[in-house]
């Protein structure tokens, strides 16, 4: 074992703080709201989401942006709880793709 990829307080090598904020995209606002809604409905707990982010591949954790990590952790927990399957999500995405493919 070693310290987790999320447990970064005090690690050397961090650069300057970038104070600029980016306006949230629609998908980020949606991800935020779905996460809160699932919590409000008692479907999952914040601690489970954090654990899912800790269990991610470390390179993926570093490379994803903030709400990408949220989406990935929501997917992991919803699959773990047998609420969704990866196939269902993939299939839904394929439906979107076929709509986009229409002239």
């Amino acid at each position: 074992m070693a310290r987790g990829h999320h447990d970064i307080g005090g690690l050397p090598g961090a650069g300057a703080i970038e104070a600029a904020d980016h306006p949230l995209s629609d998908w980020e606002i949606l991800a935020d709201a779905i996460n809160q809604a699932l919590g409000a409905r008692g479907v999952k707990r914040t601690d489970e989401m954090r654990r899912a982010r800790e269990e991610m591949d470390s390179a993926a954790y570093r490379d994803m942006n903030y709400y990408e990590r949220w989406v990935a952790s929501m997917e992991a927990i919803l699959i773990e709880k047998n609420i969704l399957t990866k196939d269902e999500i993939d299939q839904k995405l394929a439906e979107f793709e076929s709509k986009w493919g229409e002239p």
């Binding site: 074992m1 070693a2 310290r3 987790g4 447990d7 307080g9 005090g10 601690d47 954090r50 654990r51 800790e54």
Partner: peptide, 12 residues
């Protein structure tokens, strides 16, 4: 402690 699990005590 260094064990698997969801640990909320920072390493530092």
């Amino acid at each position: 402690e260094d064990r698997p699990g969801h640990l909320r005590t920072p390493w530092y």
